[in-house]
Computed example of a mutant assay.
Amino acid sequence: MKVVVATHNAHKVAELQRILGAALPGLELLPYDGPAPVEDADSFAGNALIKARAAAAHTGLPAIADDSGVSVDALAGAPGVDSAHYSGERDDAANLRLVLTKLVDEPNRAAQFTCAAALVDPVGTDPLDVDESGAAFEHVELGIWPGTIAHEPAGGGGFGYDPIFIPEGYSITSAELTADEKNAISHRGRAFAALARVLAERYGAA
């Protein structure tokens, strides 16, 4: 079964290959080289669907996409859906520095990562799958990863806000975890583990 990964982010493609590869050995993940859609939804699920719909429409193949970010309690849930461009540019280092700057002397460091994992299949076999958007089949799973924001970056692994996010139950940042450790407990790992079950049921890929 061939499924397009609707992202131009090489880190995410590699991460999804690790997460889904073992669970779905019959699944072939293909890179997406089409145009990037405008992600203007006000939720992670909405943006994930926008990306998956665009890739499915461009390739004619089932597509998976995710949208994720960190929400900080003391920042009223920001960066949230604006996580990738929080500093005004798509720069991981600048984004996390801005979060740390805003949290200087803030005792409440609670935060959570959220990931919405979406599947869009433009070639449905069941007319009942078709919805008002014209997509044959759409499904979204959410993964939540609670934790706290560190006072300074640590670790060289991961990407995005990983160097300043301390997962619940840990004393190190997610950037200090191995890839396998992170995938087993992360928001993205949780969301795509749930989506893997949907893929297996739908395509018999497991």
Rank of each mutant, 00 (worst) to 15 (best):
V72Q: 08
E138T: 08
S43I: 05
T178S: 15
D162E: 04
G69A: 08
G143E: 00
V5L: 15
H11Y: 12
A48F: 05
R190Q: 15
D82G: 02
D33T: 13
L61R: 11
V70K: 02
K12G: 11
I164G: 08
G26D: 12
N47M: 13
R53A: 12
G143P: 03
A111K: 09
A117C: 03
Y32Q: 05
G156V: 00
I166T: 14
D67S: 08
K51V: 12
A111Q: 09
V4C: 12
T114Q: 10
T114M: 12
V5G: 13
A63R: 05
G157P: 11
E138Q: 14
T173W: 04
G160T: 01
R97L: 02
D42Q: 13
E141D: 01
A76L: 02
D91S: 14
F44C: 07
E39T: 13
D121T: 01
D105Q: 09
A175P: 03
A36H: 03
L49M: 07
H151W: 01
G156W: 00
R109D: 11
T59H: 06
A111E: 07
V120Y: 02
A150S: 14
L75A: 04
A76G: 08
F137S: 06
A23N: 06
N47Y: 10
F165W: 08
I166R: 08
A76H: 13
R202A: 06
E39M: 05
N183T: 01
L49V: 15
V72G: 11
G46W: 13
A54V: 02
T148Y: 00
E132P: 00
V3C: 14
A200F: 02
P79N: 06
D82M: 10
D91I: 03
M1Y: 11
V72E: 13
F113E: 06
V3E: 06
I166P: 07
I144Q: 04
A54H: 05
S68D: 11
T178L: 04
N183H: 13
L49R: 14
F165Q: 07
G26W: 09
E106A: 09
A22D: 14
R190N: 10
P146I: 01
F113N: 09
N9T: 06
E28N: 02
F113T: 03
A41I: 03
M1E: 10
E106Q: 15
D42L: 12
A200L: 02
A194D: 09
N108W: 00
A74K: 04
P107S: 00
E152H: 12
L177N: 12
G69I: 10
E106F: 00
A93N: 05
P31G: 12
V13W: 06
S87A: 15
A52P: 13
R190T: 13
N47C: 09
R53H: 13
R18E: 15
P107L: 11
E89Q: 04
G69W: 11
E181N: 07
L98C: 05
I185H: 15
N47I: 08
G134L: 01
H187L: 09
A52S: 14
N95K: 11
L75V: 05
T7C: 05
H8I: 08
L199G: 11
D131Y: 06
D129F: 03
D82L: 14
L128E: 00
E176M: 15
F165K: 04
A136V: 00
G134P: 04
G60M: 03
V72L: 11
S133H: 12
K51T: 07
A55C: 06
A118D: 01
S68Q: 10
S68L: 08
P62R: 00
S174I: 07
N108M: 01
